[in-house]
Each structure stands twice: as structure tokens, then as C-alpha cells.
Nucleic acid binder design. Structure first.
Lengths: 209, 209
DNA sequence: GAATGTGAACACATTCACAGCT
DNA sequence: AGCTGTGAATGTGTTCACATTC
């Protein structure tokens, strides 16, 4: 599908570009150029052009990029098109509840099918209209619903067992909100969202100017 | 303080090393070597050694690293020592509430002094014992408490005004949970925790194998 | 003329491989 | 003998600068 193998860094910037385009779309701009991107977020113009070049010639020389068309292209690349991505949240604690109530997920066609917990006090409840189910039914739901990636928020102690269950499924991705390092098959893409680590990194910068 | 200027990538790994050390500490290990790190998390042994070398000679040749002493050193580097870091959360929505209730922050001596919101229904409440104050008092509290960094969780629409208020303060860091790109003085270190972007990155990987 | 697309130069990060300590 | 610490080699990502296209 792509002309070259796309660098990790490029992939991480695609969502940023989408945000920039949305910004200009709201302003009614029909065309933007790479300098407009640089002025709005701190990504150098040459980076934007090189990033996009991995996916073809998406701009018009001498003119720039058409906002609508580039938005469409990037959405297609990422996979936000007609399709809806389904996921489940493992754990129904504080962070999980925040995610369940998070409105912006509608914009990216993310459908949180259910959350899973072992606490009887939580099972049966709903947060932001997402039901909390018994952790015992996790494997079954993933299989039945054809879930491709899960969001892990459970406490560190149970992560081991959860990974054993997930090994029985065909998931291809995992977003990890726990501070644990996860040892999973190379075929599963793990994306870490380690809040404590981010805060520690902030400490480091503050301490050392 | 440091022999060379430390790469960004090295700094981001320091919290990971702390996690590894904690793991081995729990197992009662007195010494670890760089291979032990590689076996536990997927960071190559040479990387660990080079990372640590920026801060001096922290190991013992032929033997490895003493768990307690290295833990102490890294904590000192990051700034988790006797001192407690104070912060405030701007916004008191779902994510803010999850952060306020988040237990693990005690381990890193993070003290969330207060959250700030404009919603009268939230002002005066407490989440995880953190009080929600009127957003109008933000500047005053930051100054009085000597807050060095803030956590931003408010909705996109009000981010502009908030940044104006923050400009009047002496904060040196900002952890950004909103999807907005923030234009702030170069003197303020911004760390982004963009959950939606992470999920979109996951979409990309799933779509393209 | 203006802004893209891209090879080439450069900067930064990782990995190798071995000298240097314990 | 064993494992760290680190220059040198390699690999990856960014920036430059200009030919190319509209």
C-alpha cells in the first residue's frame, strides 16, 4: 500500500495533522501550505512534506494542500472512515470510567462495547452507557464481537492473569494504561500510556531546569 | 550537574528503569546486571549502560548494579527524594477526577493541591480528598503555593483563556491531557498525554497490519 | 512565482565490540 | 572471568536546498 516503510515518528504525527486540518477547516480555509502547519504546531514544514510523501503526492505544487481532500486522505490512512472500531476496556476503575464517559471518542468512530471487572459491586452498572460485565466473560465477548484491540486499565496485580486470557484471543493491539511492562507476542502492538512515567519525566525537567 | 547533555530518549527511560529496579527489589535481589534489564523490558543492555553513563559510573565492573544504590541514584536524578512536588489540576471533569483518585501518586510524592473548574455544581466538592476550587482563584493559588507545574484537562474551548492566566504565573511545566496543541513560552516544558491520538495510532497499525 | 516532493547532508539514537575495572 | 563504560560504526529521523510542477 505504501511506497516505503513508514517511520514510527511519521505515524505518530498523523493524528496531529488531522487536528491542524480540523482547525483550518473550522476557519473556512480551503487550502493550507506546509508553513501554516509549522506556524500552528511546532512541526517543521519539511517534516510535514516528507511525512506525507510516504503516502503519495497529496499536495499541489505552487498551491499547497486542499484541506478537505487531505483530511479525507489522512483519515483513510489511519482508518477513520465509514468503519467503526470496536474495543473493550479491561478494568472498571477510575481511569476506565473516565474513558467510558469520554465524549470525543464518537468523533473517531470508536465504540467501547463493554468494560470488564471482577468486583460484583461494579458488574451490571453502566458508565457513559457502557456496561460493566464480569471479567469471566472477557474471552467470549472478544471472540464474539471480533474485537481487534483492548484497553487495559486493571491494577498491576491481576495483569498477569489477564494477559493469559488475552493470549487465547486473536487481538492484535493493546493500549496499556497500567504502569506495568507487558510481555506479549510480537504480533500484538502495545501502546503505553504511562501517566506516572510522564509525571516523573516532568519532575526531571523541573529539577534540571 | 551532568557530564554531557542527556538525550530526550534517555530521560524518558529513567522511569522505566525505576520500575525494573522495584521489581527486582521485591524479589530480594541485591545486584542486577544490564542483561537482567533486557530480559524484563525490551530495552537492550547497551542502551541501559549508555543511558546511565550520562550520569556517572553507577555500576560496578564485573558485578553489575546494586539495586538499592541505583534506585537511590535514579530517584535523586529524577527528583523523587525527600521533597514533595505540588501540582494543581485545571478542570474537574472525568479525567481530572480519575487523576484525583489515583492512588499511585503517593508513591512518587506528588501532592495534588486542588482542582479548578467553573461549574458551580463541582466547586466545593472533593474527589479523592482533593478539593475543587473556583477557576477564578487559579492564579492566586499557583502563586501562593509556589506551584511549578500544572495538569491541564479542561475542554478545548477554554484552553485559550487558561493559557492567558497561566502566562501571568511562573509555572515551568504543563502536562496536557487535552487534544489541543498549546502555544506557550519556550521556557515552559509541555508534556502531552493525547489519548485520542494514541488510539488513532492504534487504528493505523491495525489497518496496516 | 510559489509551494511541493525528494535526494543529499546532517544530527541524533542505537548497537557493536572491546578496553578497563573489580 | 565477568560485566561495566564508552569510542566507533551503524541505523534512523530531521533538515537543507533545489529541481519540479502547477
Amino acid at each position: 500500500m505504501f511506497r516505503k516503510n513508514v517511520p514510527e515518528t511519521t505515524i505518530k504525527r498523523l493524528p496531529v495533522y488531522l487536528g491542524v486540518l480540523e482547525h483550518f477547516e473550522k476557519q473556512g480555509r480551503e487550502f493550507v501550505n506546509s508553513q501554516d502547519f509549522e506556524d500552528l504546531v511546532d512541526i517543521k514544514q519539511a517534516i510535514l512534506r516528507k511525512d506525507l510523501s510516504f503516502f503519495g503526492e497529496l499536495g499541489i505544487r505552487g498551491k499547497g494542500y486542499e484541506v478537505k481532500s487531505l483530511t479525507f486522505q489522512i483519515k483513510k490512512l489511519i482508518g477513520i472512515d465509514s468503519r467503526t472500531w470496536k474495543t473493550v476496556i479491561i478494568g472498571a476503575g477510575n481511569i476506565a470510567q473516565a474513558l467510558m464517559k469520554y465524549k470525543s471518542f464518537e468523533d473517531i468512530n470508536l465504540d467501547i462495547t463493554a468494560a470488564f471487572d471482577s468486583d460484583p459491586a461494579k458488574i451490571g452498572k453502566r458508565f457513559g452507557n457502557v456496561p460493566v460485565l464480569d471479567i469471566g466473560s472477557l474471552e467470549q465477548v472478544i471472540n464474539e464481537e471480533g474485537i481487534k484491540f483492548v484497553i487495559l486499565t486493571s491494577p498491576g496485580e491481576v495483569v498477569g492473569e489477564i494477559l493469559e486470557v488475552l493470549k487465547q484471543t486473536k487481538i492484535k493491539g493493546l493500549i496499556n494504561f497500567t504502569p506495568e511492562y507487558l510481555r506479549v507476542s510480537k504480533k500484538v502492538k502495545v501502546i503505553n500510556v504511562n501517566i506516572t512515567a510522564k509525571i516523573l519525566t516532568m519532575f526531571f525537567y523541573l529539577k534540571n531546569q
